[in-house]
């Protein structure tokens, strides 16, 4: 509990830093003195929404990764190695092409439905695979994702939509403004649902036989998890684009020290996810100021480094 409070304090400090890092100069003094309307505007329209978006997307994606890992019973899956993210991008493209007038919420729901179908397909393939080596599972997901991405890009290329697809595929919070991130609150609500159902997901992580023995309907637990993961992923992709590695490395790091009893580990995963995303985004804003590196890139570097560490560390228990 004490550790959790410390972690929360750390994330709060990062969030505070995120409010004051950027091109236009916003200082505490300027805000409090009420001297600068511009500073207040920047704060309300850009900085606060961006920071909130980072917190919500970071925790949401990390928790989604954790849920997927429990459901697939594999340490190497996350929304971007299970066909989820790619299917959501496909859904975004389809709804943008076929029903361009659809409001953001509607688009997100379509993307969410596609993500759900894609992830269900992934789990369906896993079910039919006789040999489930831990390393084959994410490979199957990556292949499935590649097939879906190929169709997405074929259509996008034909209709000159490649730029939009790139925006959904690469996480970037620089475009987050007031009025354009609020969907992520849905993700936060779903994360709360995941916490309420944490015991069920832990039981599902023990396997189908254990789940049945303990009187739970395995199929129902999996469905609940898939809906949460799909909608959170869709909300993140619709607002700021895919954040790679997050759902992979954060649950693995937390698992090493805290284990996988989700009632206990989920708050850690949510906080660490938010913290890591904040840190990466702040770094991206600082290294080449006044320009920015999108979080898809910074997270790719940091995430892959952590992932390599996880793979190569001594006594690594595969899967």
């Amino acid at each position: 509990m004490k550790g959790l409070v410390l972690a929360a304090a750390g994330v709060t400090a990062l969030a505070a830093a995120s409010l004051f890092v950027g091109v236009s100069d916003v200082t505490v003094g300027a805000l409090l003195g009420g001297m600068s309307d511009e500073a207040t505007q920047v704060m309300l329209v850009s900085r606060i929404p961006r920071t909130l978006a980072l917190l919500l997307a970071g925790s949401g994606m990390a928790v989604s990764g954790l849920i997927l890992q429990m459901l697939a019973r594999n340490r190497f899956v996350e929304p971007s190695t299970a066909g989820t993210a790619e299917s959501a991008v496909f859904g975004m493209l389809m709804v943008t092409l076929l029903a361009p007038g659809t409001p953001m919420l509607g688009r997100m729901l379509v993307a969410g439905a596609c993500a759900l179908a894609g992830t269900a397909l992934f789990l369906g393939i896993l079910r039919r695979m006789p040999l489930r080596s831990p390393l084959v599972v994410p490979l199957v997901g990556i292949m499935l994702g590649a097939v879906i991405t190929a169709s997405t890009e074929f259509v996008a290329y034909r209709f000159d939509m490649m730029q939009s697809v790139r925006a959904w595929e690469t996480g970037d919070f620089s475009g987050v403004l007031r009025g354009r991130y609020e969907l992520l609150w849905i993700g936060a609500a779903l994360t709360a649902v995941a916490y309420a159902a944490a015991d069920r997901f832990t039981v599902a992580g023990l396997g189908e036989d254990f789940t049945t023995n303990l009187g739970l309907n395995h199929r129902r637990v999996v469905s609940l998890g898939l809906v949460i993961v799909s909608l959170v992923t869709a909300a993140v992709i619709a607002t700021c684009g895919m954040i790679p590695f997050l759902g992979l490395v954060v649950p693995n790091l937390v698992s090493l020290t805290r284990g996988d009893n989700m009632r206990r580990s989920l708050p850690w995963v949510a906080l660490s996810g938010a913290g890591l995303v904040l840190a990466c985004d702040i770094a991206g804003r600082l290294v080449i100021r006044p320009y920015e590196i999108p979080i898809g890139t910074t997270m790719g570097i940091v995430g892959s480094a952590i992932f390599l560490y996880l793979l190569l560390r001594k006594n690594a228990h595969a899967g």
Binding site: T202, V203, G205, G207, L214, D260
Partner: peptide, 20 residues
């Protein structure tokens, strides 16, 4: 042959026996 990917402590695992 119970394969376990979830990392639980012994006490947590046993406590899940009370879940029903």
């Amino acid at each position: 042959d119970n394969q376990m990917t979830a990392r639980l402590t012994v006490r947590d695992l046993i406590a899940f026996g009370r879940y029903p």
